[in-house]
Each structure stands twice: as C-alpha cells, then as structure tokens.
C-alpha cells in the first residue's frame, strides 16, 4: 500500500499545493515518487515524531494540509499527546499516516508492530481513522478524505499485492463494505486481515457454513448502523483484526451489539497476549495469535459445532 499511498498523494498534491508530506526520516524506497516530483512540498523533519506533529499543527493553522509519515507506533503513539492537544484539540487538518499495520514489520519486533494504534486513537471522536484493507481501497479512501475537515489517521500496510475479493476498492466514510453475503455468521474484518477473513469464509463454505464478510475501514464515524444490522440478521459475529482485541474493531462490534440490544454472540479474534521476545515473520505472528484463515475458520467451526473455544 505504500506505493499506492505515495503515488495517489503525489497526484493530489500536484493539484493542490497546500498538501505537504512530512516524514520522520522513514520511507526509503517508498516516498520517492512524491519527494522527487514535489520537493518543495516534502519535508524530512528528522527522527522526531512529536516535533513532526507539532510542526504540522502550525502548518495546518497556516492553511496547509500536512500528511505525516512514519511506522505506525512511531506515528500514532510516540506523539500521542501532541496529537491530542494539537490537531485534535485545534480541529486542524493534519493527516497522520502509520505504515506497517498489524505485524507487517514482523521480524523488526514488538517495537515496530502496529497492534495498538487504532485502539489507542479510537476514543477521540474528533479524529477520523481510516484502515484500508487493500491498495485499491486506500486509493479510494485518500481521494475521498484527503481534504477532510479535521484530523485523520490512516493506518496502512506495506503489501502492494493484497486484494480482498469483492471489495474492488470501495470505500465510504462511516460505512462497512459487505463483500460476501451469508446466513450462518458474519465475519467483520479490519485492514489487510480482511483477505484472511475472506479465505476463512471459503474454508467455511466447504464445510457447509455460509458466512457474510464485512470490511470496516473507518472509525469516527464508525459504521454503527451497518454493524447493528449485521447483528440483527446473524446469530454470530466474529471480529478479525491484527490489533489488541480491546479498543478497536472488536470493541466497536461489542459496543454496537450491546447498545443495539441485539444479544448476538460475538467472538473477537485479535491479539490477546502481551508482547513476547521471540520474533519472526508476519505469518509467524499470525499463527501465534490465530489470525490466519485456517485458524479463523477452525475457531468458527469449533464454535458452530459446539466445541469449546
């Protein structure tokens, strides 16, 4: 998604010179399409993420639309309080771009994993959060929200090849995208794990279970109506995210079910354990936390057939 981000933002920034791209010294072999084409709209602020957010707050007050790029935890969490008291408090159009959603920086270890960024930022109602599931959806989301009236956090992946069957790049702020209709349960997925959820739906279909798959790509506004409708029409919802289960998608679905009085069973698939020292690839981490399509399908099957999960 990084190339899609850089290319799409370059298009936008060519047409609107208020758009700036700031990086805290990250984005090698990723941001060059922008920095080469529009050097006057590009600033490497150095390794200083909270300063980057402060600088962007001042730039936005002066009429600019700064996009800030770093790896998810450095973009979202190091400057958390500068985001809170800066663009969020001032309602200024600063855009934070956190790359490496979930375990994409697998071998880099826990310091680089984006498993708490959306959860940490979701409590702020004035911050639009965008979590695209595939490059095509990121492009649509950028085109739809780049001039949003207020701050935005984009949680993006690195993988340029990933596609979610049936999504076709669709994105609507505050809406869930249904990519597959089923009767027995609904899988509700965030980010690139949406592809795993679709894979799990295929595996379940082979076992005679029919699953709806819904993609959630925005918070604040969150697709509450869409999720409540899914809760009313299905007896089981399963949230799937490469994120701690408390705070982001799993919490949103749980809150929505409770507030709608739907009484639907919910299984939250995500990260439940504290960080561990042994590292490995993204696939390793997905297996460790039960986030791959096989694990998702196995979990649902065990539940639907009455086994203890």
């Amino acid at each position: 998604m990084r190339a899609t981000f850089a290319n799409t933002l370059t298009e936008i920034a060519r047409a609107d010179r208020r758009v700036l791209l700031l990086t805290a010294d990250l984005g090698y072999m990723a941001l060059e399409p922008f920095s080469d084409a529009l050097p006057d709209q590009f600033v490497n602020v150095g390794v200083a993420e909270q300063n980057m957010v402060g600088i962007a707050t001042g730039l936005a007050e002066g009429g600019f639309l700064p996009f800030l790029y770093s790896i998810a935890p450095f973009a979202a969490l190091r400057p958390y309080e500068f985001l809170r008291n800066g663009p969020i408090l001032h309602r200024l159009p600063v855009r934070i771009v956190g790359v490496g959603a979930g375990f994409e920086y697998g071998t880099a270890g826990p310091s680089h994993h984006g498993i708490d960024d959306a959860a940490a930022l979701r409590p702020h109602p004035g911050l639009l959060i965008v979590t695209p599931a595939e490059p095509g959806q990121l492009r649509s989301a950028l085109l739809a929200t780049w001039d949003h009236d207020g701050p935005v956090y984009y949680r993006i992946g690195k993988d340029e090849r990933i596609t979610v069957p049936g999504l076709n790049g669709r994105f609507r702020t505050g809406r869930a995208e249904i990519v597959r209709e089923g009767r027995d349960l609904a899988l509700v997925a965030m980010g690139a794990l949406a592809a795993e959820a679709c894979g799990a739906a295929d595996l379940l279909a082979a076992q005679g279970l029919s699953a709806t798959v819904a993609i959630v790509s925005t918070f604040n506004p969150s697709p509450v109506e869409d999720l409540a409708a899914l809760a009313r029409s299905h007896s089981l919802l399963v949230s799937v995210e490469a994120q701690y289960v408390n705070g982001a998608l799993g919490s949103l679905v749980a809150e929505t079910i409770a507030e709608a009085g739907a009484g639907t069973r919910l299984v939250r698939i995500g990260v439940r354990r504290p960080p561990q020292a042994r590292s490995g690839s993204q696939t390793f981490y997905h297996a460790l936390h039960g986030l791959g399509r096989d694990a998702i399908a196995a979990r649902v099957l065990a539940l639907m057939t009455g086994e203890r999960i």
Binding site: G54, G58, A60, G86
Partner: peptide, 9 residues
C-alpha cells in the same frame, strides 16, 4: 513545535 510549524507555514 507548533510555533516552528507556524513560522514554516
């Protein structure tokens, strides 16, 4: 930091 951004703006 905000002031430096404002000056850059």
């Amino acid at each position: 930091a905000m002031a430096a951004g404002s000056a850059l703006a």
